[in-house]
């Protein structure tokens, strides 16, 4: 039975730059949520978690449970939410600065642990909200407030990092290819385990890569998704530096692995109230 379309707007005023590519992600996310709802997920069981940055403002614009965490920390906040109540569907939204700079340790470990969370990185390849400095995925030579002569560091390929950290779902989307993005996020949310999506999200004010991306992006075929070697080859087609290389979009890698919280919470049930435990016996044992 088809459910009614859910209205997700809030009273919060949107403070992104006019024309910001985050608007597209917001619209897509609404569709994804509606999709989830159609498939039977209760609205109250969805939690959005964000960090701090332009991208992270998104949770104020969605009428759902949400937790605005610290810069760099939303992923690990989300992991905690899953430990606190593993029935919840957790979607984490973060900027590249937050995820690939400030909080990169959490990214590696969440992937390795395989927590059942979907992470969407709004990758505008600069710290936008702090008026543009280079991040881990800015190209070498990036000119920003802290690197007026061009940054000297080479960029990191976050997908390669995720593959080596054993992320069980690795994808890339683009904020100006919204249909593909919606399909991709739908699949990521349905995947049981850690789903990582790097969303290319041109910053139209500080680092507008739109024209360049438009020429180079293409949708990959979905095949051999469990083949690590092939995934790596695809991931290496573009290194976040080369301005000529084609940029594949879609799923690079997908593998079923046991989920962290299911293992960690095995044999346990969380209750509110006094526990029925024989403390005198425990005192004897320890």
């Amino acid at each position: 039975m088809a459910q009614k379309k859910i209205q997700l707007d809030t009273s919060a005023k949107k403070t992104w730059c006019p024309g910001c590519s985050n608007f597209g992600i917001l619209a897509t996310l609404k569709k994804v949520i509606n999709n989830l709802h159609q498939r039977g997920t209760a609205m109250e069981d969805i939690v959005l978690v964000s960090g701090i940055g332009c991208s992270s403002k998104i949770i104020d614009y969605l009428g759902l449970n949400s937790f605005s965490s610290l810069h760099g920390r939303p992923l690990v906040s989300g992991e905690g939410i899953k430990l606190g109540n593993k029935k919840l569907t957790v979607i984490v939204l973060a900027g590249d600065g937050g995820m690939y700079n400030e909080g990169i340790a959490h990214l590696v470990h969440a992937a390795k642990r395989n927590v059942d969370i979907t992470l969407l990185v709004h990758n505008n390849r600069n710290f936008a909200l702090t008026t543009s400095q280079f991040t881990a995925t800015s190209p070498q030579g990036f000119k920003g407030g802290s690197s007026p002569e061009g940054s000297v560091e080479e960029p990191l390929n976050p997908l390669a990092l995720m593959l080596s950290a054993q992320a069980s779902f690795i994808g890339r989307g683009y904020s100006f290819r919204l249909e593909g993005l919606e399909q991709l996020i739908n699949k990521a949310v349905r995947h049981q385990g850690f789903s990582f999506i790097d969303i290319l999200q041109p910053c139209i004010t500080f680092f507008d890569t739109t024209d360049s991306y438009n020429k180079r992006v293409y949708a990959m075929e979905e095949k051999d998704l469990t083949d690590e070697k092939k995934a790596l080859a695809k991931i290496k087609e573009w290194d976040y530096q080369d301005e000529k290389a084609n940029i594949p979009l879609g799923i690079f890698y997908k593998q079923e692995r046991p989920v962290y919280e299911n293992m960690l919470l095995k044999d346990l049930s969380f209750s509110r109230g006094d526990k029925k435990i024989n403390f005198k016996k425990i005192l004897k044992e320890i």
């Binding site: 920390r73 690990v76 992991e79 606190g84 340790a105 435990i277």
Partner: peptide, 28 residues
Amino acid sequence: KDLQVAVSQLENEIAVINAAIGSAYAGA
């Protein structure tokens, strides 16, 4: 098991406290 407490060791103390705040937000 006897105490019905989940125990999680995470990557660093920043992760520890932030995850803990997340789980408390979720009601644990």
